[in-house]
Amino acid sequence: MVSKKIYLFAHIFTIPIFLVIWELISELGYVNQILFPPPSSIFIAFIEMIKSGELVSDLSISLMRIFVGFLIGAFLGLIFGILTGRIEIIRYTLGQIIEIIRPIPAIAFLPVVILWFGVGELSKILLIAFGSFFPIWINAHDGVNSVEKSYIWAAKSLGAKSKTLLLEVILPAASPFIITGLRIGIGSAFTLLIVAEMAGAFAGIGFRIDVSHLVFRIDKMFVGIIILGILGTLTHKLFIFLARKVTPWYDTKQ
């Protein structure tokens, strides 16, 4: 019992101690305070950004871009994943093309996308959609492609035709894979969001981080960075919750 208390103690106090050490390193002049702001300045900058309204507007526009872009990428990824996963001729044709493009880091397409679509919302949303598409496509593809034959046989022996088979057997069976794909896809989406915003934008978290760097407001940069961390954690937790809700049977399946 004693060791358990020590673990709990250590667990609770790690972050506060970490923050205190950070604060001290910065305050005691071992590093340039401007370049390495202490948590207290970061917090003050945070309050400043809320009061000025820029935090809320940056957050709104970034979330809008990710939401729309991810939704488009997820929708297309799912549809194409089902098509290439279930229909052989499509797998060998369209599937082949998608597979050739997939290994290319989506970031590499940023200049091309900006050239073709400008620096407005469209280019960012398209890039995010493009980047989210691939992990979702391949996981959906693998999911529907690897549904156990016996489920299909069981369904058919109960009279299932194509539509029922797809909606009531194949998609549910593939849902753990699909959710994994979505989880990886949202990660891609965040990366592309920041890259796109840093390359050409007038608002957004990524933009704010970039622009703050130019005016030596490192404290504001860190506010943006920490917010991204929080968003990442929240989406991660959201997907774990989603997986538990939609596929409660998956972990416990033999």
């Binding site: 046989w153 069981a154 009531e168 057997v169 049977w249």
Partner: peptide, 20 residues
């Protein structure tokens, strides 16, 4: 020549739909 609801099947590994 293909599965039919006229022939029912009970599998060794049950093959229940786990999501249902």
């Amino acid at each position: 020549e293909k599965p039919t609801p006229k022939i029912g099947f009970v599998f060794q590994k049950y093959v229940l739909f786990p999501w249902k």
